[in-house]
Amino acid sequence: MRGTLAFLKKELIEHTRNYKLFIFFIVFAIIGILSPLSAKFLPELLESLMDENITIILQEPTHVDSWVQFFSNVNQMGLVVMILVFSPLMAREYEKGTLVHMVTKGLPRLSIYSAKLAMLYLSWTLFYWMSALITLGYTYYYFPDSSTEGLLLATVSMYIFGLMLLALLLLSAVILETTFAPLLAVGGFVGLLFLGELVPVIQEWSPLQLNSRNAQWLTGLEPGREIIQSFAVTGILTVFFIAAGAALFRKKAIN
């Protein structure tokens, strides 16, 4: 335990000193701010730009628009930046041979692996929920009559989806040993999920529901059986990725 914590502390110092945590903070804070802002601001901007003679009917924006923006920003910016920044997580260690000292001092492989996973999950948990809280605050400020119906399910499902992608990132980083191959692996996996959307059966069980249907829960749609299936599949995949990564890392040649 002491070794795991020491290694996690090393990870924290590393990601602080090389500005990675700072980047996450800025990006996720901006997502938190930008989402309600663009929901509120964009329709007004469009209106002011329109010719007086053309009247278009723009629906008055609501808190749902703010969260729609949030989920799309987390998908397109937040998760992308996090996976990009964490992609070299193992490659750096393999390349420079820095793990040799840790392993030869008797630090179990599993400790290294769990500290790496903890680093990923701590970052995602901290910054994702920070971002969500900022959006929540501003959404209340600008849309005072907004409700919180379905909000927990919407935000938690995105959070769980992120946990799965990061588990896959670590697994591919353990196997692939190069800087950006893990990023491509995760990208490829998400691409496959999108392809799966074409087949209704797969769609019903696809983890992709967790990151694409978030806004629907806010509009009062009752979650059905598919969302439970999606959670189950995502959960199983996450556990599988974590376990496979640990098993492979235990047998990895480090020198």
């Binding site: 800025i26 901006i30 509120k40 601001f41 002011s48």
Partner: peptide, 24 residues
């Protein structure tokens, strides 16, 4: 856009600018 509108956006735009400037 009218001035009162801009005032309404200040509480959200100022933190945004601060973040961007800090980063830069």
């Amino acid at each position: 856009m009218a001035l009162p509108d801009i005032m309404a956006y200040l509480p959200i735009i100022i933190p945004l600018l601060i973040l961007q400037v800090t980063l830069m």
